[in-house]
């Protein structure tokens, strides 16, 4: 079974309880419609599992079929520089049909990011490198499409509809350990 490489570390964007027994990592593409569906259902699952879950997001833009995916990923990383990764992550997924650069800048305004800093950071090579590193690590980890999920470090290959994923995670939480 494919293993998450590198394991969760401090450069990851995480949400939830850092001590949680369940660590769910998504490799996603902001322009991928399936990732858009996953975004909504993960919000629900995060609410349902509360403190039992730590969620992390890594970039896996498929740039040939999704020409705005890399720029959207950079925009979220640029928001992270200003301490608002998740706000930007959310607004991008909520508007994933319109991800051209000027729309991304508008979303950045909406979440209260500094416009000049944002514009400069969209061209920051280090942020592009970060996105590419995520992609390459994803490949090494066995990511074969988006979204791909890793649960406690192992690739999850079963269906990820809300009910399936939730019951899988609940089983893990409730199993003796």
């Amino acid at each position: 079974m494919s293993k998450l490489t590198p394991a969760l570390n401090k450069s990851d964007h995480v949400q939830g309880n850092k001590e949680a027994y369940i660590v769910l990592v998504e490799y996603g593409d902001y322009q991928c419609p399936h990732c858009g569906q996953a975004y909504s259902l993960l919000k629900k699952i995060q609410n349902q599992l509360g403190n039992n879950l730590l969620f992390a997001f890594r970039n896996f833009p498929l740039a040939q079929i999704h020409p705005n995916a890399i720029m959207a990923a950079i925009a979220a990383e640029a928001a992270d520089v200003q301490g608002k990764f998740w706000e930007m992550h959310d607004v991008i997924f909520e508007n994933q049909k319109k991800l051209d650069t000027s729309s991304l800048l508008t979303y950045a305004d909406d979440v209260g990011l500094n416009r000049n800093k944002m514009e400069a950071d969209l061209n920051e090579p280090e942020l592009l490198a970060r996105v590419s590193r995520d992609f390459e690590n994803g490949i090494r980890s066995g990511v074969n499409g988006t979204p791909s999920f890793f649960i406690n470090g192992l690739k999850y290959n079963d269906p990820w509809g809300h009910d399936e994923l939730l019951s899988h995670l609940e089983k893990l939480i409730n199993q003796p350990r």
């Binding site: 498929l62 740039a63 040939q64 079929i65 992609f135 390459e136 490949i139 074969n144 499409g145």
Partner: peptide
């Protein structure tokens, strides 16, 4: 389709 799209991103590698 997914498999080939993935490889399409990997040509430089």
């Amino acid at each position: 389709g997914d498999q080939l799209s993935l490889y399409n991103e990997m040509l430089s590698y």
